[in-house]
């Protein structure tokens, strides 16, 4: 039975946005914490830490996010835990984001000239102080653009969680389309909502970048 695409459908889709935003937030916050550790491990002096973090990055960059979602989703049942799409999605997205942000931030840390670390070392600053006060503030400036670029990818990537039964924005669109069979309007609306979320982020990143460049050359 096909019904007309109406206001209640629009409301249904818009309500599903909160899941997209929640998943994005979880993935970004979890990924930021994980990514910082991965980046520090990747650029550390310890060979073991560098190897482990490199392996972690290789695995999560080398496999599709979709497979990671499946594996964590079914992995929970293997561990005799109840099926929980939110938990599975949160874990998979966090690991995925940790790997990518870790690699982006490693590059940013290594782009800070080695003389900066040497000067801080010669001033007898500890590893923690060198990172916190000298290296990371400079790496942050380099990292802004690629980090926001990845965040935009991540927001769009949450659409994959629909496959494990999560009713976020994309899945809501599918459900409405199944009932109304008006794909152009329905998915047009869904795409427009993604765009409304992502576009301001890109704009904000450009502004932030400009402001940070200003702070350095003032």
């Amino acid at each position: 039975m096909i019904r007309q695409f109406g206001p209640s459908d629009i409301l249904f889709i818009i309500e599903a946005v909160r899941w997209t935003l929640l998943l994005s937030a979880i993935a970004f916050i979890g990924g930021a914490i994980g990514g910082l550790f991965v980046a520090l491990a990747r650029s550390s002096g310890s060979k073991a830490l560098r190897r482990i973090s490199a392996g972690f990055i290789r695995i999560f960059q080398g496999t599709p996010l979709l497979m990671q979602l499946f594996l964590f989703y079914f992995g929970l049942t293997v561990l005799n835990l109840p099926i929980n799409p939110l938990l599975a999605a949160a874990i998979a997205l966090t690991f995925h984001a940790s790997a990518y942000l870790g690699e982006i931030w490693r590059g940013s840390i290594e782009a800070v000239p080695s003389g900066q670390t040497e000067a801080a070392t010669a001033l007898s600053l500890s590893y923690r102080d060198r990172m916190q006060h000298v290296v990371l503030p400079q790496a942050a400036r380099i990292a802004v653009a690629p980090t926001v670029g990845f965040l935009v990818q991540l927001i769009k990537g949450t659409s994959l969680t629909s496959i494990i039964g999560f009713t976020e924005l994309t899945r809501a669109g599918q459900i409405v389309n199944n009932a109304t069979f008006d794909p152009f309007v329905v998915f047009g609306l869904v795409a427009a909502i993604y765009f409304i979320i992502c576009w301001p982020l890109s704009l904000y990143a450009r502004r932030l970048e400009g402001r940070m460049r200003l702070a350095f050359t003032r």
């Binding site: 000067a119 001033l123 600053l125 000298v134 400079q138 350095f216």
Partner: peptide, 26 residues
């Protein structure tokens, strides 16, 4: 103390902050 060929001042800190960072943190 050490002085380098390329100065290696911390570009994100003011001159004063460059000078006070290490004494404060140590």
């Amino acid at each position: 103390g050490m002085v380098f060929q390329q100065f290696n001042l911390f570009p994100h800190l003011t001159v004063l902050q460059n000078c006070t960072l290490a004494p404060l943190k140590t």
